[in-house]
């Protein structure tokens, strides 16, 4: 056996043997993801250039679908609405989540782990169950309306709670808040108390110390949480479909509509590709912060 060279990450004796191990370990997953992730996306990409004639897919290369996407004002409106919704949900999650993440990381003492897990746990409950609960809560005769009436805060049920942008936003914030708290917690947890102490020692008041030390050092967490929140919010389908009522369609609903009701696969695929382009642009722009948050040195 060769000697294990000190300091290098080598753990197996020979170069060739090592390469064979690496290949054998990676191949199944990589092949799987190629077949079931990359290939479907490529198919969608290809279909987006095809055309639809008499409800049959016709291969070819046409930019017509993309032209149609950019020419349709209704589509633009739902794209803008989707972006707005995702932005609002992201902002709300950041504002709601930051104090909680800070509390868990810096003030909760020995309850830290329990509280952190308690934040994340609802995220693992099936989306359809969470949404059915919100329908019970928000409906015209729902729990919140009935509670408000019995408290005398309102005489008539608030009709706008369910099937409105409000309920979509509540559902989305509910779905993604845990997702946002997690990276925020990780970032704030990494901030040493002595850094904050040092700022105060050098005459920074509590607010100044927060702005100068805590906030910039938690920026990676803020950005990463925001990116995921925004991306997921942008592509969400179930929540707006069941809570939004369908008056104003979000982009994901339009895509689903194209595929399933109008059977226009190329048209739907083209919109999906536009959505993907937005998602990947966002990911690329935030790559630096993603790497910092995943533990690499800044």
């Amino acid at each position: 056996m060769e000697r294990i060279s000190g300091g290098s990450p080598t753990i197996l004796p020979s170069q060739r043997r090592r390469r064979r191990f690496a290949l054998a370990g990676l191949a199944p997953l990589v092949l799987w993801q190629l077949v079931f992730f990359v290939v479907p996306l490529l198919i969608l990409l290809v279909i987006s250039f095809w055309t639809m004639r008499n409800y049959r897919l016709e291969p070819g290369f046409s930019l017509e679908n993309y032209r149609a996407v950019f020419a349709d004002p209704a589509l633009w409106r739902s794209l803008v609405l989707s972006l707005e919704t995702a932005f609002f949900v992201t902002l709300a999650c950041a504002l709601l989540g930051y104090p909680v993440a800070y509390f868990i990381a810096k003030k909760a003492g020995r309850f830290r782990i329990v509280l952190l897990i308690a934040v994340i746990a609802p995220f693992w409950i099936s989306i359809v169950m969470r949404i059915s609960a919100w329908r019970i809560l928000l409906g015209e005769n729902g729990v919140i309306n009935q509670a408000l009436i019995s408290l005398g805060l309102t005489s008539e049920p608030l009709g706008g709670l369910l099937y409105s942008p409000v309920s979509t936003a509540i559902g989305l914030v509910y779905a993604y808040l845990p997702l946002y708290v997690l990276p925020l917690y990780a970032a704030i947890d990494r901030i040493q108390d002595s850094w904050i102490d040092a700022a105060k020692d050098l005459n920074a008041g509590p607010v100044r110390a927060f702005l100068e030390v805590t906030l910039p050092l938690s920026l990676p967490g803020l950005v990463v949480g925001a990116v995921f929140c925004f991306i997921f919010g942008l592509g969400e389908f179930v929540t707006p479909a069941l809570l939004g009522g369908g008056k104003q369609l979000l982009i994901a609903q339009i895509i689903q509509d194209e595929f399933q009701r109008r059977q226009d696969w190329p048209g739907g695929a083209a919109i999906a590709m536009v959505l993907l382009a937005i998602v990947f642009t966002l990911l690329l722009l935030s790559m630096r912060y993603l790497r910092i948050a995943s533990g690499e040195r800044p």
């Binding site: 992730f37 479907p40 996306l41 198919i43 969608l44 991306i231 997921f232 942008l234 592509g235 969400e236 389908f237 994901a252 895509i255 689903q256 595929f259 739907g268 695929a269 999906a272 959505l275 993907l276 998602v279």
Partner: peptide, 9 residues
């Protein structure tokens, strides 16, 4: 990836 897009894929 938006789950909808994965589903359609």
């Amino acid at each position: 990836l938006p789950q909808l897009v994965l589903g359609l894929g």
